[in-house]
Design a binder for these strands. Structure first.
Lengths: 154, 154
DNA sequence: GGGATTGGTTGTTGTCATATAACCATTATA
DNA sequence: TATAATGGTTATATGACAACAACCAATCCC
């Protein structure tokens, strides 16, 4: 009985809401950040930096110009140029001129690049044990609530 | 109707569990990683790298020797030496020899360092809007379930 | 006492990411 | 057609972190 002696009909709910949100946030952050380190797993498995792996993953949805890739990685053109250089040398992507605008270079995943990208996705998508071991009913509830937290929820 | 045509009494529940865990994991990762960038906020507010801020935060619980600090940051001694150098120059920590073992240096937060560390904690603890705007009943449920996911849950 | 161990420091090297400026080729526009 | 804007490339500098090797001083242990 530390916070709410009884269900609290209306007004005191605000402080509760903030406190709960903070606790939930802390727990989620702990789970995602200090749990099993998927980031490291990706870099070690693929032998490329996480940032480069991210570039590969962005290309899974389809080819992009370097300009578009820059935007999706939230970085600048020179950086993108270097990253694509590197990925090209590794045989993960190819560069080709855009048919309609010869200024643009279209970056496309090779089969090897697709493999690497999918491997990265698989590693990142693997949930930690704690989630898998949750009681089925609780996980189902969690699933329903988390769906409402996603960007495309409302 | 791809997976479960009807509630699925028993055996197919395993695949559901995995799928749900994956979805929940993806949603949590998205919220923590690609949401409001607290990391950047910390580095920009304090003017030090996130790693250094982490060192400060670790010291909030009390002074540590550099060896202990190394362990908590999961880094090596040379790196710790440099970090403490930097934080010392900024006036955030002091180095003093351990009274019982003169090999050890005890790193202690200064008042300014404590301020900075607490500021970082405050920024990191601030939950994203999505959580605060969740329906109270849902947040309460989330709170209850997340508590069971924490390390010290049985 | 003497050798091994431990805690820190210094220095080197390499990778990664950020930021800028300068430049070239292509396209759009006045 | 002349000029500006856009997409990429090249070059340079900087800062952060990782991984080592080598070293000094204090402590531990035989």
């Amino acid at each position: 009985m530390t916070e709410t002696p009884h269900p609290a009909p209306d007004p005191p709910g605000d402080a509760d809401q903030a406190a709960r949100a903070a606790r939930v946030w802390a727990a989620m952050s702990a789970l995602v950040l200090t749990g099993e380190d998927r980031r490291k797993e990706v870099t070690e498995t693929l032998g490329i930096s996480f940032f480069r792996a991210k570039a590969l993953r962005r290309l899974l949805a389809g080819p992009l110009t370097q300009r578009e890739l820059s935007a999706r990685l939230a970085t600048d053109k020179p950086q993108t140029s270097l990253i694509v250089d590197d990925l090209e040398q590794r045989g993960y992507v190819t560069r080709s001129v855009h048919p309609d605008d010869r200024r643009c270079k279209v970056v496309t995943l090779t089969p090897a690049g697709t493999d690497a990208a999918e491997q990265a996705e698989r590693i990142l998508a693997r949930p930690p044990r704690a989630l898998l071991e949750l009681a089925p009913e609780e996980l189902a509830v969690l699933d329903r609530i988390m769906a409402r937290l996603s960007p495309e929820a409302p």
